[in-house]
Design a protein around this nucleic acid. Sequence first.
DNA 1: CCACTCGACTTGACCGGTACAGAAGACTCG
DNA 2: CGAGTCTTCTGTACCGGTCAAGTCGAGTGG
Lengths: 359, 359
Amino acid sequence: MTRVTLQTIADRVGVSRMTVSNAFSRPDQLSDELRARVLATAEELGYVGPDPAARALARGSTGAVGILLTDSLTEAFGDWVATTFLASVADSLAMSGLALTLLTPGANHDVVPSRDVAMDGVLVYVCGPESTDVAWLRRRRLPMVGIDQTPVEGTAHINVDDRAGARDSAQHLLDLGHRRIAILTIGFDDEHGIVADGAVEPSGFAGDQRLRGWLDALDKAGVTPTVAIAPFRPAEAAYQAARQLLATAEPPTAILCFSDVYASQVLRAAKDMGLQVPRDLSVVGFDDSPLAVQLEPRLTTVRQDIQGKAQAAVHLLTTVLKARHAGADEPTQHEVLPVELVVRESTGPAPKPGRRKAG
Amino acid sequence: MTRVTLQTIADRVGVSRMTVSNAFSRPDQLSDELRARVLATAEELGYVGPDPAARALARGSTGAVGILLTDSLTEAFGDWVATTFLASVADSLAMSGLALTLLTPGANHDVVPSRDVAMDGVLVYVCGPESTDVAWLRRRRLPMVGIDQTPVEGTAHINVDDRAGARDSAQHLLDLGHRRIAILTIGFDDEHGIVADGAVEPSGFAGDQRLRGWLDALDKAGVTPTVAIAPFRPAEAAYQAARQLLATAEPPTAILCFSDVYASQVLRAAKDMGLQVPRDLSVVGFDDSPLAVQLEPRLTTVRQDIQGKAQAAVHLLTTVLKARHAGADEPTQHEVLPVELVVRESTGPAPKPGRRKAG
DNA sequence: CCACTCGACTTGACCGGTACAGAAGACTCG
DNA sequence: CGAGTCTTCTGTACCGGTCAAGTCGAGTGG
């Protein structure tokens, strides 16, 4: 039982192989009557359709784009922002009939997806520029769109205005009269706690941008924040860092957090230390994840439109794809999506300067 | 600037194209010295490696397997069980150097990933047998492993022992003295509420199996449960169904839930109706998701090893892949993974038969 | 010294399609 | 009525590799 190919069908129907191909891929190239006959014969022979691999080679395009996520996928899947983004990307791609291939990072075996898997283009989500996977993708000259990472010349990017969002949230606290403000942001894997004299080297683009944004506003107001960092995982680290912040001699009256998840840990720490939010302490999150409204009190946070980000990324990538196919210039623009400060109940006026005891 | 292919390099080095191919794919087929020279020339010409699409055609295998998830991906990504499974699958595949392609279901456009994307095999997760995507995959005769769905003859499957888990949890309640037991399980999209005389047609295989399991134990004990159903989404529906259950003339003293998420809604409903868990009401979840231990009280639930499920599925699929490649018989086994009842604080002895007032 | 094995390359076919430039007949139109 | 134009189909040349079966000279054992 040899495989059924276009030729098998062509022989059977008595036409050229090309005509059979057209019957499947270019219906307008042959008469309806013949097409029907071809299709019927194909059906009869159990032919499903042109072989995707062969078609990919001949056409120069597979129907899939890749996505490269940070590190272990399990890691990424634990993050609401990342999964939401991923889901939105997949749904957006579906409209173009494209599938999404998850590129497993790291060359464990001798086969490296970023180098060895066929795809039309690739989305790169929060990967450092030093990633070897990104290096492979670049060498392959695959159409690429970076999301939430440091823009690189010659590549298209989608970012959110983290900096403005952070600036606005810091300004919000200043407007409420806060002057002793702390920052709890993301740091590298092994450390957590208060950073001496704010010599922070935040991990990742978003961390960097947010920090800059907060400082934009605070510096201007002459406020020097205490900065604490915690790794993304485990969540407990953020809790500990929060306790440390709140246990200082002059504890902050407000904390700006890298994310809603961090903020939720701050809330917990505050509760455990007998502090009332927002009476004793104001807390600001980031992302406006579902968590933000589930918490008690609901979080003041910075909303980013993740679905919009995904759609923008997909749109940009498909544009690049089309341009390349048409031989035209590929756009390498930078799109920065707006964010919005959402004020809820976790922030309030700065407490009166009077004594306060934590514990 | 014409594309660099094996031939380009071969000409440059002065060897046959095959030798260059071997330099990349079969290092043992040529001398180290020559290989080094070939690789150097390739590097110099900016050649990244054999073209994946061409290789896929020639070799008959792409380095990716597909996964088909129910409905909209956004839907699936909202579910802890599904995302955890997905992440574990991706990680397991990474070990074999395989990438994972998300098949976007539903033929929106004229291009249907399930039919048009090249892949070596496919995992099918909770898809009804009537899915057109599954039909395409079947017609393509792709190696396939079904997960959490009704086994079909001739296909390999991985399932968890939902039925036994359900049976155990029902028995647990019986052992605690409960006799007025209700079930809150998953139903089709548009309905929710109490099902008259238990004529339930649960949606999906897991729902069916769990229901059977509960009834296995209850029937044997002569207990006839009240059954309520709610669609998977929105979560609110489960809450409403729970309220309905608890508002009946003879309210149940225990509720068996389809999932931890459903159980969390029951908990909320109970709280809102002034019932104490487990004093007035026992609640059992399913899955042992992180939610189970976050809730207050922590849920008694049935643990399933999702990561193990993913690993088993990947292992089975790669076995099928290897078998097919070797021309051997492909296993079509059914693996059923064990589950485990985890007793926590949401279940307790049945309240004394005395009066009880809800509200 | 010769048949025999072995390593290192080469040869030619093949994987299953698609793109593109005809070719043959039917139709239109001045 | 002949030239131009469709429509419909065919032929040929790729796409960029891999596979299996050589070829050829060098080593090897009897």
